[in-house]
Design a protein around this nucleic acid. Structure first.
Length: 275
DNA sequence: CGCATTTCCTGGTAGC
DNA sequence: TGCTACCAGGAAATGC
């Protein structure tokens, strides 16, 4: 194969493409959101699609960053198109992730047996950063992005600003299960298309219609009817139910319209008061 | 080291 | 219509 840099400036996001010259792709693997393609001669091709990246056999009219020439018995061309340049496409010595620090500290695959409640509990004990931000760091578990962090926290009734180590022990199992359930369901629906995302076959993902919190500011919470709130956490849009996801214990029973009314006059929660 | 904030990047759109 | 301002977010860089 060969890999040719097209509309892409020099820099760490598209590094060492010349090393791919003459190499063979030996496998296609994945860790979290990173694609890892082991090459011969002890190299690896690392691809991260970012927000808008896609691998396509058709030459894109715009934003083609890399062209791969596969020189097998049946030569093929593949293009990496990446409108917003949030993606990466680079060659590294196998396992040398010095320019990809997230791959150093990435957590277990969410759908693997390694991602247990005990693992998540231990991981959460290590950080006092807000649980939402910590999930996005990829450290406790791989592959959770902004949408699925919000959905999993909504499902497990955890306020996104809760310091990771303060997530109640009894909710850790629910969070682990919610992460797995949400990711499985989204994969089943071919992902979530807000604007740009397309599957490898060019189709939109249908999980958008299954979202309970993300993007639903002001809409009634599907669980309790309270309006979904939005605020910025760690620089990212964050949607949550201020009633289901209270910092302290959630209601024990399904709320009635009477108890909802009474809660609307409740004192601000610890996170609301620090705004 | 931990944690918070800023940066990268383009296209779509709200508002005037 | 044309302009500016802002928003979307994964991961790295920067600041303290």
């Amino acid at each position: 194969m060969t890999a040719e840099r097209l509309e892409a400036p020099p820099g760490p996001k598209y590094a060492n493409l010349e090393w791919a010259q003459g190499r063979c792709i030996e496998a296609v693997e994945r860790r979290g959101k990173f694609l890892i393609l082991p090459l011969d001669h002890g190299l690896e091709l690392i691809i991260h699609l970012g927000m808008t990246g896609i691998i396509t056999a058709e030459k894109p009219e715009r934003h083609a960053r890399v062209r791969l020439l596969l020189t097998g018995s049946e030569p093929r061309q593949l293009y990496f198109r990446d409108t917003r340049r949030f993606g990466r496409f680079l060659v590294v010595p196998a396992g040398d992730y010095r320019t990809l620090p997230t791959l150093h500290s990435i957590g277990p695959e969410p759908l693997s047996e390694a991602f247990t409640e005990a693992h998540l509990h231990r991981a959460l004990q290590r950080s006092s950063t807000p649980i939402k931000t910590y999930l996005l760091s990829q450290r406790p578990v791989a592959g959770v992005g902004n949408i699925y962090a919000d959905e999993a926290l909504w499902s497990s009734k955890i306020h996104p600003l809760t310091p990771a180590k303060e997530v109640p022990e009894r909710k850790v199992g629910a969070l682990r299960d919610a992460i797995r359930r949400v990711l499985r369901a989204s994969i089943e629906a071919q992902g979530t298309t807000l604007n740009d995302y397309r599957t490898v076959n060019g189709e939109v993902g249908a999980y958008l219609s299954e979202l309970n919190a993300y993007g639903h500011e002001g809409d009634p919470c599907p669980a309790c009817g309270a309006p979904i709130s939005r605020r910025v956490v760690g620089g990212r849009s964050t949607f949550y139910c201020p009633d289901c996801q209270r910092p302290d214990d959630p209601p024990r029973h399904r709320p009635t319209s009477l108890s909802r009314r009474s809660r609307s006059a409740r004192k601000p929660t610890r996170f609301e008061s620090s705004r």
